[in-house]
Simulated assay, not measured.
Amino acid sequence: MSLENYRVETLGDFVGRELGVSDWVVVDQERIDAFAACTGDRQWIHVDVERAKRESPFGGTIAHGYLTLSLLASLAMEIGIVPKDASAGLNYGLDKVRFMTPVKAGARVRNRVTLESAENKGGGRVLVKTTNTLEIEGEDKPALVAQTLAMLIA
């Protein structure tokens, strides 16, 4: 991202503005299987392709909700939500998450980020809240909408 004058000291000027949109990323079966192996969540609707084709209301496997949520951090970093003059940006938490539409295996998603607030915490720290909308290519509704918190350190 190359928002002009986007720095730690000018974050307040960007509150209420869209910071950017990431590139598309494919959520393929390999990624879903790797997430299942990592987390131990091997529910058939995620990993059993043949059964999901037969029994799932979605016509195939879908990504874990938490897999789609986990994509937000890297896609937000791609956009450049951490200003270049910050020494670090740390995950601080979530205020609200809503899973809206399942992500089918093979779908492409991207993150649209809006800066909601930037609160100076002193000592060179700024707590930022962003709204992240994970869009699914070709779908009217997003996969999820999440308000995330990050602590920026100048």
Rank of each mutant, 00 (worst) to 15 (best):
E137G: 00
P142N: 01
I136G: 02
V109N: 01
K141H: 07
A146Y: 08
V109D: 07
F99D: 05
V128G: 06
E137K: 10
E139P: 05
K104G: 11
R108M: 11
L152K: 08
E139Y: 11
S117E: 03
G123I: 08
A146N: 04
L144I: 09
N111D: 15
G106I: 05
P142F: 02
V128E: 12
L152A: 10
V128N: 11
T148A: 09
E116H: 13
P102Q: 02
A105K: 02
A143E: 03
V113K: 09
N120P: 14
T101K: 11
V109Y: 00
L144K: 04
V113L: 13
F99L: 02
V126R: 07
G106E: 08
R108S: 12
A143D: 07
L134T: 13
R110D: 09
K104H: 14
E116V: 15
G106W: 08
V145Y: 06
F99S: 01
R125D: 10
R112E: 14
T133L: 00
A105D: 06
K121H: 04
A146Q: 09
R110N: 05
R110S: 01
N111Y: 09
V109L: 10
T101N: 04
G106H: 08
D140H: 14
V126Y: 09
G124E: 05
N120L: 06
T114Y: 12
E137H: 03
L127G: 01
N120Y: 07
L127Y: 04
P102I: 01
R110W: 02
N111W: 06
A118P: 02
T101S: 09
V145I: 14
A143Y: 09
R108L: 01
E119N: 05
L152V: 10
K121E: 11
V109C: 02
M151N: 12
G138M: 04
P142K: 03
A105F: 06
E119Y: 01
E116Y: 00
V109R: 01
L152F: 14
R125V: 10
N111C: 15
L115S: 13
V113E: 12
A105I: 10
R125Y: 05
P142T: 01
D140F: 12
V128D: 12
V128R: 10
D140A: 15
R108E: 11
A150W: 14
T114V: 15
R125H: 11
V145G: 07
A107R: 07
A146R: 05
A105R: 04
D140P: 08
A118G: 02
L152I: 13
